[in-house]
């Protein structure tokens, strides 16, 4: 067992893990952050996407010990502490970007990663960025709509704030 420490959603956490403990197991089983889902466990579906040091990664395809010292952001860190949804989450709700909701945490984290990199993506760019996120329910159209709407809102706010 090795002791690891990292920041998860801004809070310092630590724990004892085996070499083979996955980051997603550490988040879900050790920290109780069950918002990050496991769909395939083979790196294909994207339900487990979180941010590590500001970039999207599949938490089922990374060892917990490899994230020692990192800053991790999960779906639980997206809404404000009082429960107010982030712009992207609110857009998913508004545009019916989810049905069963299983893929949604990964979709939201991938969308946030995209909008961090590109504030004004085209529809094609949104679709390409979601290549590693599989949804069995929605047919993707409303997810894409939600992300484009969130991007527009975020650009508007940035302009208004200046």
């Amino acid at each position: 067992m090795t002791k690891i420490s990292m920041k998860v959603n801004g809070e310092a956490v630590s724990g004892e893990v085996e070499g083979r403990t996955l980051l997603v197991q550490f988040l879900r089983d050790h920290l109780g952050l069950t918002g990050t889902h496991v769909g395939c466990d083979t790196g294909q579906c994207g339900a487990c996407v979180v941010h590590v040091d500001g970039e999207s990664v599949k938490a089922c395809n990374m060892l917990a010990a490899a994230a020692d010292g990192a800053e991790v952001m999960t779906i639980e860190g997206m809404a404000a502490p009082d429960g107010t949804l982030s712009v992207i989450q609110a857009a998913f709700q508004e545009h019916h970007g989810l049905q069963c909701g299983f893929c949604t945490p990964g979709m939201v984290m991938s969308a946030a990663d995209l909008l961090n990199r590109n504030a004004n993506p085209s529809e094609a760019e949104v679709r390409a960025y979601l290549e590693g996120n599989i949804c069995r329910c929605t047919g993707y159209h409303n997810i894409v709509k939600a992300i484009l709407a969130a991007a527009a809102t975020l650009r508007g706010e940035a302009v208004a704030a200046e």
């Binding site: 996407v49 990664v57 599949k58 395809n61 991938s110 990663d113 290549e131 590693g132 996120n133």
Partner: peptide, 9 residues
């Protein structure tokens, strides 16, 4: 190659 999360690692 793959998708963004794969390319980040």
């Amino acid at each position: 190659i793959g998708d963004p999360a794969v390319r980040h690692k």
